[in-house]
Computed example of a mutant assay.
Amino acid sequence: MRVPELIDSHCHLDDAAFDPDRPDVLRRARAAGVQKIIVPAYNPLFWPRLQQLCARNVMLYPAYGVHPLYLHDCASDWLEALPVLLEQAVALGEIGLDRSANAPDHGAQVVCLKNQLQLARELGLPVILHARGTLEELILILRTFPGLRGVVHSFSGSLVQAQRLMDSGFYLGLGAAFTHARALRLQATIRSLPLQQVVIETDAPWQSGATFKGQRNEPAYLRETLEALAGLREIPARQLAEQLTRNTLSLFRLQEIV
């Protein structure tokens, strides 16, 4: 079944995991109906390669930012260099907070996040947010930046947290995590989410879904997420695809880009 245009709202296509076959990955994506891909930066050391990749392919839309796990790779002038790159970007990201083992100092993470949130608000850009073990803290910080828009990628929180984010103008990025059989709590949350502020993503090359467990993830597998979400919500995949595409175009203002 052919569905309307799909947009992968979060895919690290610049990662070295795609170096052996990136043209084939893009070809498979197009064959699966994925026509646009948001490619968020995560390490400032890789900003140049992301810029070069997106400049060569009209399917790809870059976002630039400093992921909390890569604070130590920032040059001293990173906050001055970032606005220049953002002139050609659709969002500021991937940024956020991370409480995983061996993560950088949490206070330093918060400072870096707030600097980038302020920059995004000044530039009128949406943000792409990472929250590992920090969703409640992130929600409280976002309240101090009224008017800011964006997406919490790989959302796995509660329905109450989802509603608080959506009430603040944020979208929820759903990856393939909910396709695994044990993700019962997340599946229950997703069944009740308003779809007007939901987008789908792969987070490739990571976070493969149930069908491709143990394999490198890629944009073509976004179809699995779409079909699984349509099954959970008991609506036709075509209808869902149309809604999700409208959401993603609106969030990143892609319809304004010629």
Results as ranks from 00 to 15, higher is better:
12 H>Y: 10
15 D>Q: 07
17 A>S: 15
18 F>M: 08
20 P>L: 03
21 D>W: 02
23 P>L: 07
37 I>N: 08
37 I>D: 11
41 A>K: 02
42 Y>I: 14
52 Q>Y: 10
55 A>T: 12
57 N>V: 12
57 N>F: 12
64 Y>T: 01
69 L>Q: 14
69 L>R: 14
70 Y>N: 15
72 H>W: 14
74 C>D: 03
75 A>G: 13
80 E>T: 05
82 L>Y: 04
86 L>N: 02
91 A>L: 07
94 E>Q: 08
101 A>T: 10
102 N>T: 06
103 A>K: 10
104 P>Y: 06
108 A>G: 12
115 N>H: 08
123 L>H: 00
126 P>S: 01
131 A>C: 05
132 R>N: 10
138 L>R: 00
140 L>C: 09
141 I>D: 12
141 I>Y: 09
147 G>S: 02
150 G>D: 04
150 G>Y: 00
151 V>T: 13
155 F>T: 06
157 G>V: 02
157 G>K: 05
158 S>Q: 09
159 L>T: 01
161 Q>S: 04
161 Q>N: 05
164 R>S: 11
165 L>C: 00
175 G>Y: 07
176 A>Q: 12
177 A>H: 14
180 H>F: 07
181 A>H: 11
182 R>D: 09
196 Q>M: 01
201 E>K: 05
209 G>I: 03
210 A>S: 14
211 T>C: 12
214 G>S: 01
216 R>K: 05
217 N>S: 13
220 A>C: 14
224 E>G: 09
225 T>S: 02
226 L>D: 14
231 G>A: 11
239 Q>P: 10
243 Q>Y: 00
250 S>Q: 15
258 V>N: 15
